[in-house]
């Protein structure tokens, strides 16, 4: 037997936290048992047989001939070819009611779904269901632009029909909106409830800062108060919702986190979590000791919130753009694979015809799908591979010889021990939230 290659160890007081990235599980070990696990494994079996058995059971200890890397390769291959799920992103509009200074999208004023593009999307989805009997889940994500500009009159009827079509076939469709929340009004809440909608809502920090970034262009009226009220309204009125609050931070916003937490102090922690994302244009010098960020994460957790930071949660591929069953449809019938670039002809990779057939640019698609994102010298030996799977296929298409620039470890603003301690605390909070009270 041997210790798993994917064990990471962090000292904590007189103990060690061990995190196995392949199986996404933590354990707390005494200093002595940590030493035996790392250096004298047979002695651990004698000195603490029950501990040894449990470590084997949870795969912190594996057979000598275990091929953990090979298992991960197979997992990736299975995931990107998974016939049970389809990831569909819709761009109902590339217009927006705000003008955040850091947004990379090219706005198309007045753009919106047409009756023809709506019917094309419905025809495509029906064909998916009927030609792929293994397909069980359709994950529909609304992006843009601001996807809710024409929600009641255009988007909701389309999504309600997708939901009905799925249910008639005993399949599942789920709906997720990436939105600034300005268009979520009391009269739309029952519609979102019928869709079992979940959301990502972006925040730019405390009220003054948020209102300097997210304001109505004509009146310069800030949107912070309305956004906070909407978060409460959604959690109180939607039975099954979940809201990922994407907190765009920079060095100025981090010290003011308590103000934002105070404004969300009564929100249902089961329905709201926080994701911290640096505004990339404010690029930190990537020193791995940002104490203000560490304090901000700790403060959210101290107040009972789930917190995510970095894109290192356990999954089976780097980005869904690598999945075979994935497409992005814009309001005008153009099709894309990557949602992290602007939706311009340069990045267009296909077309959805009026009768619902998707025609990819075969050359572009082949180049993208041939990329195995972790299969490079940088990632193959990385113990974080099960959490990361390497730079996304878009970055590798654009910069195939400079992958190190995109390594998440390089951009992490916490030390690895601090990051693992944060993840350990976060896992404890999640466990507590999952436990029925």
């Amino acid at each position: 037997m041997k210790a798993s290659y994917y064990n990471l160890y962090v000292p904590h007081k007189e103990h060690f936290i061990c995190y196995n990235t392949k199986n996404d599980i933590f354990c707390l070990l005494t200093d002595r048992n940590h030493d035996l696990l790392c250096n004298h494994l047979p002695q651990l079996a004698q000195a603490a047989p029950r501990v040894y058995e449990q470590l084997v059971e949870q795969r912190f200890i594996v057979d000598d001939d275990a091929d953990e890397y090979g298992e991960l390769c197979a997992e990736y291959d299975t995931a990107i070819h998974n016939p049970n799920v389809y990831y569909l992103t819709l761009l109902p509009s590339l217009d927006c009611n705000l003008r955040c200074w850091y947004c990379f999208e090219k706005h198309v004023k007045g753009s919106h779904l047409t009756p023809e593009s709506t019917q094309a999307i419905l025809a495509y989805v029906r064909r998916l269901w009927d030609e792929h009997p293994q397909l069980a889940h359709l994950n529909v994500e609304m992006f843009g632009g601001e996807p809710l500009l024409y929600f009641r009159e255009e988007l909701y009827p389309l999504l309600a029909q997708i939901k009905q079509d799925a249910e008639e076939r005993q399949r599942k469709a789920s709906f997720f909106f990436v939105t600034n929340a300005v268009c979520i009004t009391p009269d739309t809440l029952p519609l979102f409830d019928r869709l079992n909608a979940s959301f990502q809502i972006s925040i730019d920090g405390y009220k003054d800062r948020h209102d300097r970034v997210k304001f109505i262009p004509g009146t310069r009226e800030g949107t912070y108060d309305r956004m906070i009220e909407t978060v409460y309204s959604l959690t109180r009125n939607l039975k099954n919702t979940y809201i990922n609050l994407r907190l765009n931070y920079d060095d100025e916003t981090l010290p003011h986190m308590a103000d934002l937490i105070q404004d969300l102090i009564d929100v249902d922690r089961h329905k709201v979590g926080v994701h911290l994302e640096r505004v990339w244009q404010t690029g930190h010098s990537a020193k791995h000791d940002n104490q203000a960020l560490k304090a901000a994460i700790d403060l959210w957790m101290l107040n009972g919130f789930k917190v995510s930071y970095m894109n290192l949660g356990r999954r089976s591929f780097s980005c869904k753009a690598s999945a075979v069953n994935q497409a992005i449809f814009s309001y005008d019938g153009t099709a894309y694979k990557c949602s992290g670039r602007d939706f311009t002809p340069q990045h267009c990779e296909g077309t959805l015809t009026a009768d619902g057939f998707l025609h990819w640019d075969a050359g572009k698609l082949e180049r993208r799908m041939n990329i195995v994102t972790y299969d490079n010298d940088l990632c193959r030996s990385c113990k974080l591979m099960p959490l990361c799977w390497g730079p996304c296929c878009q970055k590798q298409l654009e910069s195939p010889s400079d992958l190190e620039r995109f390594c998440q470890k390089r951009h992490m603003e916490l030390s690895m021990p601090d990051y693992i301690c944060y993840q350990f605390n976060e896992a404890c909070i999640e466990t507590e939230l999952r436990t029925p009270s």
Partner: peptide, 23 residues
Amino acid sequence: MKQVKTTGNLPMDGMILMFVTGG
């Protein structure tokens, strides 16, 4: 209205095999 907690223990502060599963 509740107030923001600014002091206190995070889960690991008061902790020995103990397992915690990730998400």
